[in-house]
């Protein structure tokens, strides 16, 4: 859907999308990194299960919600991508029960 302009330079950041390795440019927001990686949709809605993708890129539409490092419903267009970040697409409503138990297991 999006491609990167050639010869931008800059540092590369490694992260994962649903466990698959991907790279972004340092300074990208998570949403930009996802668009650049060829991702079509970042979540399905809790109401009808319809697919959604980043829409406004400026923090007002809340369409770009993803799970970042185990925390759901983060606005990916406002968060800079970081080395080692684990990004997961979402299916329907966020599960705080599984987030919480995963956090407990990690601790």
């Amino acid at each position: 859907m999006f491609r990167r302009l050639p010869d931008l330079g800059g540092e590369t950041v490694n992260f994962t999308i649903d466990g698959r390795p991907a790279t972004a440019r340092l300074g990208d927001t998570v949403a930009a990194a996802l668009l650049a990686s060829g991702m079509e949709s970042c979540r399905t809605t809790p109401v009808s299960g319809a697919p959604r993708a980043p829409y406004c890129m400026m923090g007002v539409c809340f369409e770009c919600l993803v799970t970042i490092n185990g925390i759901g419903n983060r606005q990916s267009c406002l968060i800079p991508v970081a080395e080692g970040m684990a990004i997961e697409t979402q299916k329907g409503a966020r599960s705080i029960a599984s987030e919480y138990s995963a956090k407990g297991d990690a601790a």
Partner: peptide, 25 residues
């Protein structure tokens, strides 16, 4: 307008400014 692939023009502009991304296809 809720389909993936539909975005605001401003959103695409932000992707260009901050990340050097241009829409493809």
């Amino acid at each position: 307008w809720t389909l993936p692939g539909v975005m605001t023009a401003g959103g695409a502009q932000i992707a260009l400014k901050t990340s050097g991304l241009v829409p493809d296809g």
